[in-house]
Design a binder for these strands. Structure first.
Lengths: 175, 175
DNA sequence: CCTCCTGACTTTATTTCCTAAACTCAGGGC
DNA sequence: GCCCTGAGTTTAGGAAATAAAGTCAGGAGG
């Protein structure tokens, strides 16, 4: 098993390799890796719920939005909820499920990376903060993602991690 | 500003909205959101460097791989490094830059999400662990992503975060 | 009753992207 | 001179994205 850090220069130690297709990253990307999917989730996290809201915010074509929402609903990331405005007929809106809400760390990580390397010259446009302002235990400080291990070591630098096979691992022989 | 958690039910409080296009998530996805890009980065983190390695591991078409590698190099995620095997001519391989290595938290977050909702019935195929086995301060425990704020509050539940405008924010009037 | 209006989609045509497979190109070995 | 390898490029076909127009179900107004 090679070190996750590409600084592992000794290529020879690598004797067996985990099948890269049987991987949760690949499966996750199959669900949320299509264009627009994570942006739809981001807008949903920011309060968007209705077809027209997503459309106006993202500038996405309506057929694509319909297709992506269907995919996300089918995957369990969002759910279709009926609503009715007074003096209007019943319509449907789209809300994140718990599964969808659990994408928040991923989006925060992407945001952080984008802020670090691709931000607007004026600085980030969005800062993720701790707790809403109306909460009585308000904090308001910026939030970051960190890596920590089950033994309680916190703030692991990203180079201190490596991939190891899990119970579902399949191996490929090396040439 | 609305709570990131879509559980914020009071839609009326939202008076101005951050421009969703001017956002680091969108910019990050413009770079690594294309199909294959994050999988290429994942393989690079796992030690892949050469064209044929990426190709064999991912089963990606060679023209697309060439195009994606070019994009990643142009974006500063990877760099093209010459190498020469003994008795062979000079060739090029692709390595992650620091910018590319900084995608590790994102990938760990995606992996975690995939493990939670889409894993192989036998369990995850990959476990990210703390430190390589040959390190003298070996730990080996599984690694997780956590959210924490600048005030030192750790292990924030994802619902305890909200989006606030940063210095580069542009606002849209609400209809 | 008839028409207009709105929100939520479909349909259609055009362009762009992805896949698969064949082909090129630069050396080194035989 | 001919073949081999790794690293791409080219080409042709199919799938997906974009843009714009059309549909559809009700409610409101006249």
């Amino acid at each position: 098993m090679e070190i996750v850090n590409s600084g592992g220069y000794d290529r020879a130690v690598q004797t067996q390799r985990i099948d890269p297709v049987n991987c949760s990253v690949a499966r996750a990307l199959a669900v949320v890796g299509e264009r627009w999917s994570l942006l739809i989730v981001r807008e949903a996290l920011d309060g968007a719920r209705r077809f027209g809201e997503f459309r106006a915010r993202l500038g996405i074509a309506s057929n694509l939005l319909a297709a992506r929402l269907d995919t996300l609903v089918a995957a369990g990331v969002m759910r279709r909820v009926p609503y009715q405005e007074p003096g209007d007929r019943q319509r449907f809106e789209y809300r994140l499920t718990d599964q969808g809400l659990d994408l928040r760390p991923t989006l925060v990580a992407l945001l952080e990376w984008g802020d670090k390397y691709l931000a607007d010259p004026q600085g980030p446009s969005v800062i993720v903060r701790h707790r809403p302002a109306d909460d009585r235990t308000a904090c308001g400080e910026p939030v970051r993602v960190t890596l920590e291990c089950a033994a309680g070591h916190t703030h692991l630098p990203p180079e201190a991690i490596y991939r190891a096979p899990g119970p579902g691992a399949r191996f490929l022989d090396r040439a």
